[in-house]
Write a protein that binds this DNA or RNA. Structure first.
Lengths: 229, 229
DNA sequence: CCACTAAATGAATGCCGTTCATTTAGACTA
DNA sequence: TAGTCTAAATGAACGGCATTCATTTAGTGG
């Protein structure tokens, strides 16, 4: 039976300990960690367009079908990659800094990690935490930070979800073309919008996505900070 | 030359007026509006998994390749659908209510429309407004509302972008499974998170995604409201 | 009636994720 | 040592996908 990251647990498994019934073949060429690492490297080199099961198998010197002994679908591989990436999100500030600074630090880190992996966002956004242990560990660290800061327990999850939604949406902005708001030939019929875009451009040279992120993050942190007991 | 919604404008076009050089064939079976309507209907019936160029052609009683006389790619069709959907977003409150209530009304409407079409979010989030006239019209209405409310011009776009990011991220939440936060067998190692999830569940029967959206939207509206002159 | 052209056709292309019967080769048992 | 069990790898195959292209169709203006 192949390994699986699927959400539905195997109902035939009697206990947690994996029972070895008989002999095993020698050093397996493949395992989930190796697949995850190779996938991450491939994505880094070829992007998500070039990330195919065939290409992944090639980098592992293996037939494409061999992957399916360790993973049940391409989506499974994406889940593994997503969870691994989440371990790069920096939650250390929750142990070292006041709540508002910790949230900001975490949020920026989170956005930066996934702005380079926006195709994973539809996956991660609806993924049960059971299937992503490192992601769960991140939530635990953040939840602990909120609790220590005096947050009412029944608001913690909602606040984290709201922040995360803002973070995911903002990750897309980072990859948007810089002329995304150029109204072109329709400028005359959209005077208010066109003027606002022009005024924004007049401002400094700072990244537009960063400015919006800072603005929204500030509002969320201030607003949520008022909930603390 | 086939019609195109592509971002790069045709450099060979001399003026805006479409010059008819010679005779035209009779009633074309297909046009962009018809394709858009059929696509929307097909998506409603079969979802985005069932939305293929072949299936779309079938509903139009046409060969798949015929679509490419009016549209340059499947992505083009998605852009057409996205823009059409945006016209369903309600911006009327900006003409009838105070700014904060108008923003809330618009944001809820925007989220509700795209929570049923999350596969379009990666498309819309990075789409130049030139390619989506109805989307541009929405931005104009919102920008006008912000300006009338006394917003400094150079902050209007950033505030809208931040709100939109939050809206897109929140649209995913609506489609997430309700047990997404069930930590299962790892509950013992994540006490803070697990407790917070339990406390949230103790609360009313309200939709979890709606609670988080309301919480975040309130913070953003309050925070941005303070920017008005 | 002819020349022109937008639009539809249908076959072909290349890629994709995935399945499956079969083979391989260690490891335990007797 | 011989026999058996099994996880894992193979390679061929499948169906589906978006897209391309040479060709045909059928109105229209000259």
């Amino acid at each position: 039976m192949p390994a699986s990251t699927s959400a539905t647990a195997d109902p035939h498994r009697h206990d947690a300990k994996p029972r070895r019934r008989a002999g095993r073949p020698a050093a397996a060429v493949l395992d989930q960690d190796g697949i995850t690492a190779a996938a991450l490297q491939l994505i880094g080199k070829s992007g998500y367009e070039g990330f195919t099961m065939a290409a992944l198998a090639r980098t592992l010197n293996v037939a494409p079908s061999a992957l399916y002994n360790h993973v049940s679908s391409k989506r499974d591989v994406l889940v593994l990659v997503q969870d691994h990436l989440t371990s790069f999100v920096d939650v250390s500030a929750f142990d070292a800094e006041p709540w508002d600074r910790a949230v900001r630090s975490w949020a920026w880190s989170y956005r930066d990690v996934f702005s380079k992996h926006t195709p994973l966002i539809p996956v991660i956004a609806v993924l049960p935490v059971t299937d992503a242990p490192k992601t769960l560990a991140m939530y635990e660290a953040v939840s602990a930070g909120f609790r220590r800061a005096g947050f009412p327990q029944e608001r913690i999850i909602s606040a984290i979800v709201a922040l995360e939604s803002f973070i995911f949406g903002s990750a897309y902005d980072v990859t948007a073309p810089s002329d995304i708001f150029d109204s072109g030939s329709m400028a005359e019929s959209t005077p208010n919008f066109t003027a606002a875009v022009a005024r924004l451009a007049d401002q400094g040279y700072e990244n537009q996505a960063d400015v919006a992120f800072e603005l929204g993050l500030g509002a969320l942190v201030t607003g949520f900070g008022a909930l603390r007991g």
